[in-house]
Amino acid sequence: MSKPLLDPEQWYATLPTAFVSACLLLTDADDRVLVVKPNYRPYWMIPGGVIEAGELPQECAAREIGEELGLDVRAGELLVVQWSPPVDDRPRAMVNFLFDGGTVADPAGIRLQEEELDDAAFLPWDEAAARLAFHTAPRLLAARQAREAGRIVYLSDVFPATGG
């Protein structure tokens, strides 16, 4: 005898959940990467943020860049999708979409949202990756490969579930 099916509300309540975020890879004319230093984290980040209810990932990435950096940038091609398990104070897995934001023509046009950001800088790829959290650095390096190869990179299990 089979078990009766759960009603949709009960069934959905049994499914795992994840946080979802979206970022933009932005570079300057010298092929340096834009990274930001939030005031609420000890490490630098790729510009972007958490997706709001009903928002598409590419909309989130463009909105966050507008809010945090004052730039009107459209999300281009998808470069990287990264799934990462819970780490540090984050209790759930995170799925991140990293889109190509292209080249910032006028870096002087960047206006930091001081409520969230302490700094922003265009850095060489390796230096930018070194400033990122251990679970974010592989995403930046994969984005470079994806941009050069013209193909999307999927990352998962790039670090132990216990963090580090």
Rank of each mutant, 00 (worst) to 15 (best):
L117I: 03
F159Q: 08
A146Q: 10
F97N: 04
L6D: 05
K37F: 06
G70R: 03
P124L: 12
I51T: 06
S21Y: 00
D100I: 01
H135L: 05
L25A: 10
R147V: 00
F159W: 05
A161W: 03
S21L: 03
A18C: 03
R131P: 03
R144I: 09
P160A: 15
I51Q: 09
T103H: 00
W83F: 07
I65C: 15
E77N: 15
G66E: 03
F134V: 04
V33D: 07
A22I: 11
L5W: 04
G163I: 09
E67C: 00
W83C: 01
E116R: 08
R32Q: 09
T27C: 04
L112K: 02
D126Y: 09
A133S: 05
E59N: 14
V33M: 14
I51K: 12
L132C: 10
E114C: 01
G163R: 14
A133W: 03
D88T: 01
M45Q: 07
L78W: 09
F19Q: 10
G163M: 11
A75I: 07
R63Y: 13
P38N: 00
G109D: 15
A93E: 13
L141V: 08
E114H: 12
G163Y: 11
P42N: 05
F97R: 05
G150F: 06
R147N: 04
R90V: 15
P86Y: 11
P85L: 07
A22L: 10
R131T: 04
T136S: 12
Y43Q: 09
L24E: 03
Y43G: 00
V104T: 02
E67N: 12
C60M: 14
R144H: 11
C23A: 14
G76F: 05
G48S: 11
N39R: 15
P47W: 06
A133N: 03
D119A: 15
A146Y: 13
W83K: 07
T103S: 08
C23L: 03
P85T: 06
G109H: 15
P91D: 06
D28G: 01
A161H: 02
A62P: 02
T162K: 12
A129W: 09
H135E: 15
